[in-house]
């Protein structure tokens, strides 16, 4: 049995949906009446050697936790789809997008562009190397700003346009998932779970590399050396004040009325 749990077309989170969802009923067509291309979609597109590795697209490495995002593209019968074009786009580790319309004010990472693409191999497998995107606040229907969970935007194109998929991927264990309005617009938990990438210990890589940093952190007397510090107090007023709030309650041992033993 094939089960589908797409959210309603009117993305209930967006105030613009009411002006964008067509009002007339769609005309139903058999999928045969759409086009199937023999080769990969957008055959004119030249894939670069580093298009699947978002950590080497800049002159130096981007800041953030490196993640391998990989998996298999199959059809609804479980058959691997080879030569599917898989594209991703995402925020940097601070939650900022390298897009002229990003109004977050979050810092850009000079070494992170946030877009990648690759084709699935003969077993339907794809693999990206990137950094874990930071969460960011987004505007919702009621005008409220609410935090999105960390997510990577995905676009997948198999052999024909009738299987076209654009979606978002989340990270297992992210506590923001339970308050993310986008994934919670999916009406069934089984559908939501399809979008949550599972931590894959077996394919994770844990190595050390190279010598220790040649970075002076103490001077000749053993005192700590700091890089230059900003002293302008106005700096705090000119940046986005958004921050995730975490509550950290501390309960001290003993009684406040009696000194520690």
């Amino acid at each position: 049995m094939i089960e589908s749990f797409d959210p309603p077309l009117a993305d209930s989170n967006s105030s613009v949906s009411t002006l964008r969802v067509p009002l007339a009923a769609p005309v139903h067509l058999d999928k045969e009446w759409f086009h199937h291309l023999p080769g990969p979609a957008f055959g004119q597109l030249k894939l670069g050697a580093f298009d699947h590795d978002l950590t080497v697209q800049g002159v130096s490495e981007p800041i953030g936790t490196r993640v391998i995002v990989h998996g298999t593209v199959t059809d609804s019968g479980g058959v691997p789809v080879k030569n599917a074009l898989v594209e991703i786009w995402q925020a940097n580790a601070a939650g900022g997008y390298r897009d002229s319309m990003d109004v977050s004010g979050f810092p850009l990472d000079a070494n992170f562009y946030g877009a990648g693409r690759c084709l699935t191999d003969s077993r339907g497998h794809y693999r990206f190397l990137t950094i874990r995107p930071g969460p960011y606040p987004a505007m919702f229907k009621d005008g409220a700003r609410a935090w999105r969970a960390s997510h990577i935007h995905f676009s997948v194109l198999g052999a024909g346009c009738s299987s076209r998929l654009v979606t978002q991927m989340y990270f297992e264990g992210d506590p923001l998932i339970r308050m993310d309005r986008m994934i919670n617009a999916i009406p069934d938990r089984r559908g939501q779970e399809r979008l949550i990438a599972v931590l894959d210990e077996e394919n994770s890589i844990a190595e050390s590399f190279g010598p220790a940093r040649a970075l002076p952190t103490v001077d000749g007397s053993g005192a700590v050396v700091h890089p230059p510090r900003r002293t302008d107090p106005g700096a705090l007023l000119t940046r986005n004040p958004s921050a995730l709030a975490y509550r950290f309650d501390i309960v001290l041992r003993g009684s406040a009325a009696t000194p520690f033993e």
Partner: peptide, 26 residues
């Protein structure tokens, strides 16, 4: 089999989705 649900493309795709060559076929 549970199909992967769709999600919106959101507002910020312009920097990623139209690399050179993709915008024309001829």
């Amino acid at each position: 089999m549970i199909l992967t649900p769709a999600q919106t493309c959101g507002p910020l795709f312009g920097f990623a989705m139209t690399p050179p060559d993709i915008t024309r076929t001829v």
